[in-house]
Design a protein around this nucleic acid. Structure first.
Lengths: 398, 398
DNA sequence: TGTACTAATGATGGTCTCCTTCATAACTTC
DNA sequence: GAAGTTATGAAGGAGACCATCATTAGTACA
């Protein structure tokens, strides 16, 4: 029947595995000498040298000038060529569209932003996306042909095939083949994911939850959602519908922050999207009415969060989203409520990436996809760095 | 700093990987010929032969008589020696203690049961465990010295180190070093886990959820709990407290099946532990009062289940535990309630392993531990089948 | 009974990759 | 400028894989 996952193989397979080990080691170091690499990979010096030579001629690795001031003969130093390829992250929010250009290490080279109108027709939104991306590419001096992958995060339920099933905050985003539309815009692999999930990924890779294996990310803002990292990997679920605890009636997340919006102290003329922020600011200043509204909001927030924490027992819960600016106001009441219910209280912190969460998560997601494509043990073979073909298959396995 | 996970290595490493591939392939087949193995592993015939010879002299593999009636020269056939080692699974419940003896394939060789009194002192319970285990070993003609690993499932919260933090249904089970106590009983590796989690594992490996990667197991009975399989692996959580959704006040699981216990039709003299069963049976016969009680119970059951389903989006939800006998009564109302709330309705089925769930899960858990020890790519080296040393470290990484 | 066919076995030679060892090279220190 | 230190490069050897082919042990059929 099915074949066993390829572990061993012939001699060339061994070489491939060793090359992957060297690359993985090299990617975590700024620049490394042969001796250091040999020690860290467990290979002998001559073998390491041969692998490095092979990777250099392929173009994955380049030599950098030796470090001076050291004893003995200076060692040649090598580093991973992160500029061998480029990728783009997109954050397609209801009111804002962000694009960021990055290299293969996830370093951001350029970033742009375009406002968007939630109610605007589909064409306008797509045009804004294209503008943001084009401007970003221009800043980096690149074109779409240089992109190896594009990952987009957006609100709403994103199906396994990059199809937006529904989105409460963007009317035009409904049963839409966003992956297909972006695929026409970019001649490379396009990945589409829910924005909360990407934010969770970013916080785990480079934010408040760095190095944690089990993370719950709370997307708290005008819309609520969660993203789950389980055992170090983004959890999508069987039908890519994981993290939708907001739909649970008992949690009362569906109406969003009505408690904050409708607080008595909110001035009449204030635009509805600013109401919650006003209440949170007032609560920070100690206004009793505002504090009362925040308490009610925290009650609801705690129900869904407690459900997630009790179920998953994460190492850390990260509060992100628009309201994470007011984490100082929100976290204390949330913490005290969780402590009452949780068997083991996880760490609880505010997002450290703020508004950048989703674009950065998109970048990290694209990198994981490319890593899978090039550097996974079950990847076909190590080939020189050229843009991968746009495969007709579905999105990357998470 | 930290070294990269060992993928490649030298020539002997390649041999090791190939040997592991052969073993993995062999374990899934009853008996296989060299040609079949070579094809399935991707190795050449001569190499496969050499690996098989090595494994045979080690004792992991043995030859079986060739199949007759086939064209051409009969091929030698080989199989994994599942009887090379033995292990034991224990189910330490409030009222019952089960022990099962199994081989390395998880095949049950013998099984025993002892009644237990929830309120009895610790010594009595430990004695019952020892009796059950001894009887089971006697049935199989073995002694504790033949055991390679013992895994125990028990009610209550089991800490990362095999310590029972608390158990509502067994008063003596409180802040107890169960792992240590069992370690004195058995001169081998002892693993302790929560029973709901082990049941979830069994249903995923050999029960209703076979081959599913994301599974929620509902332990429904006089006590409620859940076990989660995420991405094919048992999810324990950072502090080994995952799956405790029963603690969520909004779900109302803490009181257990009060709706069923207190139904008006339950006769006065009935022992409390039989009340729920009586109500469920009456509901099956169409009694309106009973049906009403079941509906209320299903309401509560649905809240916690919906939270778990919305959060994880599993492929399947398995209803297990004592009440799974009445799955025909419980599943329909649960299904209709879930369908109202869930974004994507998972499959929903009753446990197929019934009372055996936990012992079988314990066996599967022990097997995973041993597989990790012997056959994982990062295991030290392939050695002949001898009982592994009792390591002083904590329980197996799940 | 004997010949044709089929499929597995066992042995040989070749290739590849890794390792160890040692002479050589380049740079710092005194 | 000599001594000390560290990296480089080349040579030789061992282990593991593969492809190939003659041989062997059965079945099928006249």
């Amino acid at each position: 029947m099915s074949t066993v996952p390829p572990m061993g193989g012939d001699l060339s397979r061994l070489r491939q595995l060793n090359a992957l080990t060297v690359i993985k080691t090299l990617r975590r170091a700024e620049a490394a000498t042969l001796s250091a690499l040999a020690e860290r990979t467990g290979l002998s010096r001559p073998s390491t040298k041969e692998v490095i030579d092979e990777l250099s001629t392929m173009g994955w690795v380049e030599e950098v000038p030796p470090a001076s001031g050291t004893m003995g003969r200076p060692a040649r130093r090598y580093r991973f060529r992160a500029d061998g390829g480029h990728l783009m992250g997109l954050d397609i929010g209801a009111h804002n569209i962000r694009a960021a250009l990055a290299d293969l290490d996830g370093g951001v080279l350029a970033e742009t932003r375009r406002p968007a109108d939630p109610g605007a027709p589909l064409e306008d939104r797509l045009a804004a996306i294209e503008q943001a991306a084009a401007a970003c590419l221009a800043l980096g001096g690149l074109t779409t042909a240089d992109l190896w992958a594009v990952a987009a995060g957006t609100t709403g339920l994103v199906g396994p095939e990059g199809r937006v099933v529904m989105s409460a905050s963007i009317p035009a985003w409904r049963d839409l083949d966003l992956g297909g539309l972006l695929g026409e815009m970019f001649p490379c692999r396009v990945l589409v994911e829910n924005d909360s999930r990407l934010a969770a990924l970013a916080e785990t890779r480079r934010g408040a939850a760095r190095d944690a294996r089990d993370v719950i990310f709370l997307h708290v803002g005008r819309r609520m959602g969660t993203g789950l990292i389980i055992d170090g990997r983004l959890h999508r679920g069987f039908g890519a519908a994981a993290g939708e605890i907001a739909m649970l009636p008992e949690a009362g997340w569906e109406d969003g922050p009505v408690d904050l919006d409708d607080a008595a102290i909110v001035p009449d003329g204030l635009p509805p999207e600013d109401a919650a922020g006003f209440t949170l600011a007032a609560a920070r200043d100690g206004d009793p009415t505002a504090l009362d509204a925040v308490a009610r909001f925290a009650d609801k927030l705690a129900v869904g969060t407690a459900a997630a924490v009790l179920l998953l027992d994460p190492e850390i819960v990260v509060l992100g989203g628009g309201f994470s600016r007011s984490a100082d106001v929100l976290l204390p009441p949330l913490r005290s409520r969780l402590e009452r219910v949780c068997l083991r209280m996880p760490k609880l912190s505010a997002s450290t990436l703020g508004d950048e969460c989703v674009v950065l998560g998109a970048i990290d997601y694209a990198i994981e996809h490319l890593d899978q494509l090039f550097f996974a043990p079950d990847a076909p073979a190590l080939r020189p760095p050229v843009r991968p073909a746009t495969s007709p298959s579905g999105p990357a396995p998470a």
